[in-house]
Amino acid sequence: MANDREIRRRIKSVKNIAQVTKAMEAVSASKMRRAQAQVLATRPYAEKAWEMLSFLARIRRSGADQQALLQERPEKNVLLLLITSDRGLAGGLNANMLREASRKIREWEKEGKAVSLVTVGRKGRDFMRRYGPPSKAEFSSVGDRPTSQALSIQKVGVDEATVAPIARVVIDDFVSQAVDAVYIGFMDFVNAVVQKPVIRKLLPIEPQEPTITITKDYIFEPDAQSVLTQVLESFTEVQILQGLYEAIASEHSARMVAMRNATDAANDLIGELTLSANKARQEKITKELMDIVGGASALAQASS
Rank of each mutant, 00 (worst) to 15 (best):
K155H: 12
R168G: 03
F174Q: 06
A178P: 09
K113P: 00
P134T: 11
A167C: 12
T119F: 10
G124C: 06
V194P: 03
K155F: 11
A164L: 04
V120A: 07
P146K: 03
R129P: 11
D188C: 02
F174P: 02
V193I: 06
D172S: 14
F186Y: 11
D172T: 12
V190T: 14
F139M: 09
Q154M: 12
V175S: 06
L117F: 08
V175F: 05
R122S: 15
P165N: 12
V115D: 09
Q154T: 15
A161T: 07
D159V: 06
F174A: 04
R122M: 15
P146S: 05
A150K: 08
V182K: 00
D144C: 06
G124H: 02
V158S: 15
G132T: 06
E160F: 00
V118P: 02
D126F: 14
G132C: 13
T119L: 04
R125S: 09
F174L: 04
V158M: 15
S152Y: 06
D180T: 03
P146A: 06
L151M: 11
I184M: 12
F186I: 07
Q149W: 13
G124K: 03
F127E: 03
K196F: 11
A137F: 01
V179W: 01
I171M: 13
A164G: 09
A137Q: 00
R168T: 11
R129I: 09
D159W: 04
Y131H: 14
K136W: 14
P146R: 02
I166F: 00
F186G: 05
T162D: 07
F127T: 01
V190G: 13
Q149F: 11
D188S: 08
A167W: 01
R122V: 07
I171L: 07
D180G: 00
G132K: 13
Q149I: 12
V170W: 01
K123C: 03
R145D: 09
I153T: 09
F139W: 05
L151G: 06
V179C: 10
Y131W: 14
F186H: 10
P165L: 05
P134M: 11
R130Y: 05
K155R: 14
Q177H: 08
V193D: 11
P197E: 03
N191C: 05
F186S: 06
A150T: 13
Y131M: 15
V118F: 02
P133I: 03
I184W: 04
I184H: 04
A114N: 15
V179E: 01
R125I: 03
K136Q: 05
A164C: 01
P197Y: 03
I153G: 05
V179M: 07
K136M: 13
K196D: 08
D126T: 08
A114F: 12
R145F: 12
Y131A: 15
D126R: 12
K136L: 15
S116K: 12
F139D: 08
K113G: 00
D188T: 10
